[in-house]
Amino acid sequence: MESGRRWSARGAAVLVSAVALVTGLLPAPPAAAANAVFQAATLNIYHGLSRADFVADLQLITSKADLVGLNEVGERKDYLQDWAAANGWWYYAPEPTSAAQEALLARKSMFDVVDKGSVFVCDTNGPGEVPPARYNNWVSYRHKASGRNVVHVNAHLNASIESNGRPEDLPRTRCAEEQIQNIKNLAASKKDDGQVIVSGDFNIDFSADRAYGYEKFPWKVFEANSLPNLRSVYNLYGEKGTGTHTSGRHIDYVYFWKRVPEHQVMWMTDYSIVGGTKSDHDGVVATFAIQT
């Protein structure tokens, strides 16, 4: 009996040592104390809202995040510029109005502007026609707490380009395909300048896109590929709620450029859907931790 107890004790000691060895070989998780946290959001504020409803949605989403990408706000440019100046936000919405639809906001208390730009992608039906020309806008910020650069890309794809994940054979779909690839190229080109976040209304349902897997839509272009590449809130943390649009689809996205683990210094740690908007879209807010 005594020898059995000695054997059990020796076996337990060996097991503990083995566990300690394996644990020591695993990559250490980021230390929470060494990370700074911020939120990045997207919201398509329907262009037909009244001024009061527009302001309500703007105040709602900016109360939840530190970086914000807005869609369909080109006609509100003057108001947004004045609002940002009065409330401590950086604001970028380039000319022409079609480009200004995809605006970017950042808290001045948390970020400084390093660089910014806009990429014309395509104009499906010609100048002034519906749908309007598509632009991918971006701003590179210096995150004050960490000293690291964060590049925010904001975009809005054409509507009515997919049915249950299947692409519609339309000129506007081909325009969207160009825009998706340009987003990927833009993110890849900015990854050495900072940590990349992409936001926007993509008008493609996440689960339908993943199930069908059309090669020129976001799941295949961004998320089905090996790292480094873009990864969305839905890929990492699942689809929450009943959709981000009144159609019930999850079509509003926040992505980040996910690197191989040894080179990752920014992590998406969770997200939430912000309801109660006046728009036909809800907002999406992702939480990020960035190494200081």
Rank of each mutant, 00 (worst) to 15 (best):
R51Y: 14
L105F: 12
K108N: 14
S63M: 05
L49E: 11
A52D: 15
E95Q: 15
R51W: 12
A99Y: 00
A84K: 10
D115F: 05
L58S: 13
Y91N: 10
D115H: 06
V68E: 01
D53Q: 15
A106E: 02
A85G: 11
E72S: 04
V55N: 09
K64F: 01
V55F: 08
A86M: 05
G48C: 12
A84T: 13
A65Q: 09
F54K: 14
C122Q: 01
E95M: 10
C122D: 00
A86K: 11
G48Q: 13
L67V: 04
L104Q: 04
K64T: 00
Y79W: 08
E72P: 06
D53L: 12
D82Q: 15
C122F: 02
A85M: 11
G117H: 04
E72A: 09
S98M: 08
V73E: 03
G74H: 03
V68G: 01
L58W: 12
L67S: 05
Y79K: 07
V55R: 14
A100N: 13
S63Y: 07
G117N: 01
S98F: 09
A93G: 13
R76V: 01
L104R: 04
T62H: 08
Q101G: 14
A100E: 14
S109Q: 09
V73S: 02
N71M: 07
D66W: 03
A56H: 15
D57W: 05
D112T: 12
A84Y: 09
D53R: 15
V73Q: 06
Q59N: 15
G48K: 10
G69P: 02
W83N: 08
R51K: 13
V68S: 08
Q59P: 08
E72L: 03
C122P: 01
N71C: 07
V73P: 06
P94S: 14
G117S: 02
D115W: 06
L104Y: 06
K108Y: 05
T97D: 09
G74F: 00
Q59C: 12
L60Q: 15
V68H: 02
P96L: 05
C122T: 00
K116G: 02
G74E: 02
A84C: 14
F111A: 06
D112V: 06
D78Y: 06
K108P: 12
Y91T: 10
K108T: 12
S50C: 10
R107C: 10
G117V: 02
V119Q: 02
F120V: 01
S109T: 12
A65F: 04
Q59W: 03
V73Y: 06
G69S: 03
L80V: 06
R76L: 02
V119W: 00
Q101M: 13
F120C: 00
P96V: 07
A65P: 13
E102Q: 12
A65R: 07
N71E: 08
V119N: 00
V114M: 04
D53F: 14
